[in-house]
Simulated assay, not measured.
Amino acid sequence: MARKCSVCGKGITVGIKMSHSHIRTKRTWVPNLQRVKAVVDGTPRKVLVCTRCLRSGKVQRAI
């Protein structure tokens, strides 16, 4: 399973880290994904969801 939110599609972002002496190295930003049991198409399934979607109520959690 890819490191991508199943609700909003947020995934890994790539950029450049720059030190004080301007040495540039590649780095990645990884979203805060949580594996939760959510209702998808009427059935409970385990999906990867970012914490922003969880907090905003875009995901209906299954019991």
Results as ranks from 00 to 15, higher is better:
S56W: 07
R52L: 12
V7H: 01
R27Y: 10
K4L: 03
V30A: 10
G15K: 02
R52C: 09
V47F: 03
T51S: 09
V47D: 03
G42T: 10
I63P: 13
R52H: 13
I23A: 13
S21V: 11
L54H: 03
V30D: 07
T43D: 15
T28L: 11
G57N: 10
V59R: 00
K46G: 12
R27Q: 12
Q60L: 15
S21L: 11
C8G: 01
L33Y: 00
R35K: 15
K26T: 15
G57R: 06
A38T: 04
V7K: 03
V39Y: 05
T25H: 09
C5K: 00
A38F: 04
Q60G: 08
L54I: 04
P31K: 02
V59N: 01
A2P: 10
K46P: 06
I63E: 15
I16F: 05
V49F: 00
T25Y: 07
G15N: 03
L54V: 02
A62V: 05
I23Q: 15
L48V: 04
S56V: 14
K4I: 02
L48W: 06
K17E: 10
H20W: 11
S6N: 02
T51Q: 10
V7G: 02
V7P: 00
L54Y: 02
K17P: 01
R24M: 13
C50K: 00
K46F: 13
A62N: 05
M1V: 04
K58C: 08
R52I: 15
C8I: 01
T51N: 08
M18Q: 14
R27T: 11
R61E: 12
S56L: 14
G11Y: 00
L48E: 04
A2D: 05
V7A: 02
L48Y: 06
H20N: 12
T43M: 14
T28K: 14
V49A: 00
K17D: 13
K10H: 02
A38S: 08
H22A: 11
W29P: 03
G11T: 05
R55I: 14
R61Q: 11
I16M: 09
K26H: 10
R35T: 12
R61N: 07
